[in-house]
Design a protein around this nucleic acid. Structure first.
Length: 561
RNA sequence: GUCUCCGUAGCUCAGCUGGAUAGAGCAACGCCCUUCUAAGGCGUGGGUCGUAGGUUCGAAUCCUACCGGGGACGCCA
């Protein structure tokens, strides 16, 4: 509809010899649908008062033969606005077109995009810090897929870092009388051992060194350690997977740093051969300074002076591998914003060395903070485990009211997902947010359950319709709903192009408010056939939108609630 | 210190490619179930958009400075 209006305005501007590409915007003035503010822009160039131009344009518009097809009213206002009330006919025409369009008429794209939104460490449980990246990342993945892109999600496990050496050290100590092959332990053991050794390392330099040695030897391919590594990996990864599954977060590849390590010999040779590497204080670095830099950009260190590889090497190796295996147009990282300078270094290094010349982007999400505005910690000081968070939200929800105690498990889980995800996705991803478990038990107001409830109560009203929408609109709530439905394309485009799921969340909420308003004010019983048919068409379209957009956010609709 | 993100209602947040009277949720108060789910709807109160300048016909939005907060700044990830 906006397109249509823009076009009509453009023609009108041209008739008056104004050379400008006008745009209508949604008006927040009561009773006005759209406004065009471009008379102000023309005022300077043509040396006329904006209001004069606005009047000329409205007068010209009114001369249109088929004016009534498009407008109910067009009026110039005060300093130079042009206020537009569209005709019911235009609304319905636009709605009919939209309903027949594939994917709500969004812009299609066909790129290959790799997404990085996992990053859990093997041997450490998933905690709240992993929640945002998973939820946001999966939503962006869904959005990009919906747009037509081919997406490749890689969990990118931290599977060969310092924590592995520490856990192996712990195991060797606890099972000193057994052969590595015969050692057996379970998840609970792992969950205790890692924090134990990790804190030991902090107070005991000796142990820390031993663990580091194990890590280094593991990275270099020590076969004994590899035996234990595999046992740890199997246990931990299946646990990690089960939680991701619960959250409906999925990855096409379960690669990790250890896979990146496989790229090192080839990559390092390439870097050396092409003279991209400099020795600095005994370490191998890639210089990533640029003239325009406002700060003194440190070089990207890819091999420590003791010969060990580190995080940057592994990320560069991963890019190397992705280029080789997937040849993507873009690689997106949904990672904590605190790493933004680090990513600048990596991206520059990849570009400068011609390892990868496509688009590299870091969508830094804000830190999850506690009420003290410091990164969130539980009372005991650790990070809250995702498993515990989910359990708590679920219990809270079940206890909310009697009916919930009898709800079937599948529906329950869908609602818990909706609560968690919507609470997270309604915030702009780039900003910090205050984590409050209370927030995740909220089911009234701007929440996931509210949207689900809206869908379900409207779904019950739906009966057959013949697919032919009339040109009538029956009342104000009806009109408001139709106008809101028409906004779906614009909102989707914006969300997908900017990779900001919260635009979808907020549109969903606004649509639900209006749909509930409609529900309250229009009873489907005892209506004339024509009206009933029309309502069925717009309500089923309403629910199609809600369902589709919820899907994009990773939220699914329960059978009942 | 430098860079960076941020400061909007009591609390948590939208709005930021400039438009008219700054929006939600929660919390508070009031009203609406003989009619499709009240997990709902309607209404009331609540604001120097951190401060001060600047650009502009017009600034929460753009620019500058300052105040306040988070974060990052070479061998951690």
């Amino acid at each position: 509809m906006n397109k249509k209006l823009n076009q009509i305005l453009k023609e009108t501007f041209q008739k008056l010899n104004y050379n400008y590409d006008p745009k209508v915007i949604k008006s927040n003035i009561e009773g006005i649908d759209f406004q065009c503010d471009d008379a102000f822009k023309l005022a300077k160039e043509y040396h006329k008062a904006p209001i004069i131009i606005a009047e000329e344009i409205t007068n010209k518009l009114k001369e249109l033969e088929n004016f009534e097809n498009y407008f109910k009213e067009v009026t110039p206002a005060k300093p130079g606005f042009i206020n537009i009330i569209v005709s019911d006919k235009l609304i319905n025409q636009s709605l009919k077109e939209l309903i027949n369009k594939d994917k709500f008429g969004i812009e299609k794209k066909e790129k290959t995009i790799v997404l990085d939104y996992g990053g859990p460490n093997v041997a450490k449980p998933l905690h709240v810090g992993h929640l945002r990246t998973a939820i946001i990342g999966q939503a962006i993945n869904n959005m990009l897929k919906f747009q037509g892109n081919k997406t490749i999600a890689d969990v990118h496990l931290g599977d060969i870092g310092a924590q592995m050496g520490q856990v192996i050290y712990g195991i060797i100590n606890d099972f000193s009388n057994k052969k590595y092959e015969d050692i057996e332990f379970d998840l609970d053991y792992l969950n205790v051992t890692y924090p134990k050794i990790s804190s030991l390392c902090k107070e005991n330099e000796e142990i820390k060194k031993k663990c580091a040695k194990i890590t280094k030897e593991l990275q270099e391919g020590n076969k004994d350690y590899k035996i234990l590594w595999e046992k740890i990996y199997k246990l931990s990864v299946s646990d990690i997977k089960s939680i991701y599954d619960y959250l409906d977060v999925h990855f096409d590849y379960w690669l990790g740093e250890s896979d990146a390590y496989k790229q090192f010999p080839e990559m390092m040779k390439y870097l050396e051969d092409n003279n991209y590497i400099k020795i600095d204080d005994g370490a191998k670095v890639i210089d990533v300074k640029e003239e325009k830099d406002k700060i003194d950009m440190p070089p990207c260190i890819i091999q420590k002076s003791d010969g060990a590889y580190l995080y940057a090497t592994s990320d560069l190796g991963t890019i190397w591998q992705r280029k080789k295996d997937f040849n993507p147009d873009e690689i997106l990282y949904i990672v904590d914003a605190r790493q933004s300078m680090y990513f600048t270094q990596i991206f520059r290094a990849a570009k400068k060395t011609n390892i990868y010349n496509g688009i590299l982007a870091h969508y830094g999400y804000g830190t999850v903070n506690g009420k003290d505005n410091k990164p969130f910690k539980t009372r005991s000081g650790g990070a809250l485990k995702l498993k515990d968070l989910i359990k708590e939200v679920k219990t809270e929800f079940i206890n909310l009211r009697e009916e919930n105690k009898h709800m079937d498990e599948e529906d329950l889980d869908k609602i818990v997902n909706a609560i968690l995800k919507f609470a997270d996705l309604q915030n702009d991803l780039t900003r910090n947010y205050i984590f409050d478990i209370q927030k995740f038990s909220e089911v009234n107001g701007k929440t996931g359950p509210y949207i689900l409830y809206t869908y379900l109560r409207i779904n019950k009203l739906l009966t057959q319709n013949d697919g032919h929408l009339s040109d009538n609109i029956y009342n104000e709530t009806d009109r408001a709903l139709r106008l809101k439905l028409l906004e779906v394309t614009e909102n989707l485009n914006m969300a997908i192009n900017e990779r900001k799921p919260h635009y979808i969340a907020s549109y969903l909420y606004e649509l639900s408010v209006i749909a509930n308003n409609f529900y309250q004010n229009n009873h489907m019983t005892d209506l004339q056939d024509q009206i009933k048919n029309d309502y069925n068409i717009i309500l089923s379209f309403n629910n199609l939108i809600i369902k589709t957009l919820l899907d994009l956010l990773g939220i699914h609709i329960p059978k009942s609630m």
